[in-house]
């Protein structure tokens, strides 16, 4: 089984601060990490490979420093990495086209695993786009997966319904956070991951240097959020009485 896991380096959204004068989020200087649900995708790939054999390649489109973060996924158990350096202006169209071309370059891929979405943009576009470009089946929002040599069955969270779908290979699946608990690599595995290969290639290597985005982010606006921030932390009975009084005054008790 030749498996590709798509992973993205993101800013740690929990660390984002808001500029008090503009109200806009400050994105510079925020620590970066592999998007949370990508680790679930990687964990699922490892379980499938360990069950039926094969190889896992982690595929990232991003800046050169994403190579460092990809090592974490290799330490978990993936076998190799491919980093496509992202062009300056990359939208979902550009990124998914580069991913699809990189998958074709890897060749004979049976299963592609993505997260349902990345935690920074939470768009959920890359999985379905890559499946569309490659014209293969897509099973999205999988939270329970049974992979066999010739087919894969998954229970999918489709909102009002749990849809159980089955597909032959090649196929693309996207997973939710509930699908598994990603393992923490041991120190030995972390040290060992340094020996695993990560190939760095450019859009030109994929014959895609002329690809243009269909959409551009022209601004990131702040989100107005002014709250009273009244916190009662003294005597508990007094705090409770004050809170009940405040809620009554706000007119939200009746």
């Amino acid at each position: 089984m030749n498996i590709v896991v798509c992973a993205k380096q993101v800013v740690d959204v929990g660390e984002i601060k808001v500029n008090p004068s503009t109200g806009k989020p400050v994105l510079e200087g925020i620590p970066k990490k592999i998007s949370d649900i990508d680790k679930n995708a990687n964990e699922e790939a490892i379980r499938i490979r360990d069950k039926i054999g094969g190889k896992i390649t982690v595929l990232t489109v991003g800046p050169p420093d994403a190579k460092e973060r990809m090592k974490e996924l290799l330490a978990m158990g993936a076998d190799a990495g491919v980093l496509v350096t992202a062009p300056d202006k990359a939208d979902y169209h550009v990124t998914s086209t580069l991913i699809a071309k990189a998958i074709q370059r890897i060749g004979a891929v049976d299963l592609i695993i993505c997260a349902e979405a990345s935690i920074d943009q939470f768009s959920g576009q890359i999985g379905p786009r890559v499946a569309g470009i490659l014209n293969i089946p897509q099973l999205t929002y999988c939270f329970k997966i049974a992979a066999e040599k010739d087919k894969l069955t998954a229970e999918r969270n489709m909102g009002d319904n749990i849809v159980t779908s089955q597909t032959s290979y090649p196929a693309l699946i996207t997973v939710t956070k509930e699908v598994n608990q990603p393992r923490l690599p041991s120190l030995m595995q972390i040290l060992g991951s340094a020996k695993k290969p990560i190939e760095v290639i450019t859009p030109a290597d994929l014959g895609a240097s002329d690809i243009r985005p269909g959409m551009e982010v022209v601004d990131i606006k702040g989100v107005a959020m002014s709250r009273k921030n009244v916190v009662f932390k003294d005597d508990m009975d007094e705090s409770v009485a004050k809170l009940a009084e405040s809620l009554a005054k706000e007119g939200v008790l009746g």
């Binding site: 800013v11 929990g14 984002i16 989020p25 959409m215 551009e216 982010v217 990131i220 606006k221």
Partner: peptide, 18 residues
Amino acid sequence: SERVVFSGNGVAVERFSS
């Protein structure tokens, strides 16, 4: 199109050229 990004910390203004 405007959409919420960064877990609610910002709103991205997206302009289509396609």
